[in-house]
């Protein structure tokens, strides 16, 4: 152990030297009126999917509120290790952020542990409806089945082969909700259409996702959709084969402007705005939010470069209206 003691002594000494040389690492205290948000995300902020949807929303809120002087955003991306995410959430909470967001359903368990230790900090997590009955925890969820349903309706009216392919990660959570909604939308429009679903068992295997798309195309699909960040490979295969693509979570038009018909885009700012105003008025949690078509948190963004028959568009709009006024329920 002597060596170890020595080792630690040297490390301590070196670090002291280092910290003495360097300018003080502590950030300057923020002016009181600035609202500070920290977010922990499972994938990269530019994943064109789940994490990007939150990051983009935060940036939009920041712009609404007048830029970084009034609204500070810090983030930890790629925190797929649940345990590391817990450490990050606790650290942000102890740094006195006004709102600490755990943007992933796998973070809920950690928040349940952490939130009671920081009663003056507001926490939010999703996608879920569970606030654990804690007064400083918000929960948020995307009714991704709604956008899935609309995508399904539009897909059903555009397919000519009557076969549609779906590429998913693992059969759970937001992905399953979207896929089930999509299938319901197709079935409601034309029950004769066959929807083939493929879960590839991974959020990162781009190669397998793209081969899944190839498989769908070989099976006769002329319309494809998919959810989560690994579908970027599948979109390319759809483009090669001239099949249509429907996106979700973020707007995926930029990946293949000629074949992306529409994307369900999450506008979390609807939820964020409400949360922030509640926090400012002193309510730190206890409420769960849903973004959906009716409250504008989910928006079907059409690709302007892709034109489809007016009847199909009318069907989609009717589905959106029906879901908004409650006459259509995507999932029982």
């Amino acid at each position: 152990m002597k060596k170890f003691t020595w080792l630690m002594t040297v490390v301590v000494a070196l670090s002291l030297i280092l910290s003495a040389c360097g300018p003080a690492a502590t950030p300057t205290p923020a002016p009181v009126e600035k609202f500070r948000v920290a977010v922990v995300m499972p994938s990269a902020i530019n994943d064109l999917a789940f994490s990007q949807s939150m990051y983009d929303a935060l940036i939009r809120v920041q712009n609404e509120m007048g830029g970084p002087e009034n609204f500070e955003i810090v983030y930890s991306e790629n925190m797929f290790v649940v345990d590391d995410a817990a450490a990050a959430l606790r650290d942000y909470a102890s740094q006195g952020f006004d709102l600490v967001i755990g943007h992933g359903s796998q973070y809920g368990s950690s928040l349940q542990e952490i939130a009671p230790d920081f009663p003056d900090t507001s926490f939010a997590w999703g996608t879920t409806v569970d606030t654990f009955g804690l007064p400083n925890v918000f929960a948020y969820e995307a009714a991704s089945d709604q956008g899935g349903y609309v995508n399904g309706v539009l897909a059903a009216s555009l397919t000519t082969s009557n076969v549609i392919g779906v590429v998913g990660p693992i059969e759970t959570g937001d992905a399953k909700l979207y896929v089930d909604g999509f299938k319901a939308g197709v079935a409601a429009t034309n029950p004769a259409i066959q929807v083939n679903v493929n879960y590839i068992g991974s959020f990162s295997d781009v190669a397998l996702a793209s081969e899944a798309a190839n498989t769908h195309i070989s099976a006769g699909a002329d319309v494809l959709t998919g959810t989560a960040q690994m579908v970027v490979g599948a979109i390319g295969k759809a483009e090669e084969a001239g099949a249509l693509w429907f996106g979700t979570q973020s707007n995926q038009t930029s990946l293949a402007p000629s074949i992306v018909v529409a994307s369900q885009v999450y506008h979390w700012e609807v939820v964020l705005d409400e949360m922030i105003s509640m926090i400012k008025s002193g309510t730190l949690g206890g409420k769960s939010f849903v973004i959906n078509l009716a409250n504008g948190g989910e928006v079907i963004e059409y690709n302007p470069a892709y034109t489809f028959p007016a009847e199909a568009g009318a069907l989609a709009e009717a589905a959106i209206e029906g879901i908004k006024n409650g006459s259509i329920k995507p999932l029982p």
């Binding site: 392919g165 693992i170 059969e171 083939n196 679903v197 493929n198 879960y199 590839i200 068992g201 991974s202 397998l208 081969e211 899944a212 498989t215 769908h216 099976a219």
Partner: peptide, 21 residues
């Protein structure tokens, strides 16, 4: 075999997706 398991899912053969993978 990987391609086969993709087809198994596409054809709707009732095996849980994780088991197929």
């Amino acid at each position: 075999v990987n391609a086969l398991q993709l087809w198994i899912q596409v054809l709707g053969i009732p095996i849980p997706s994780d088991i197929a993978v």
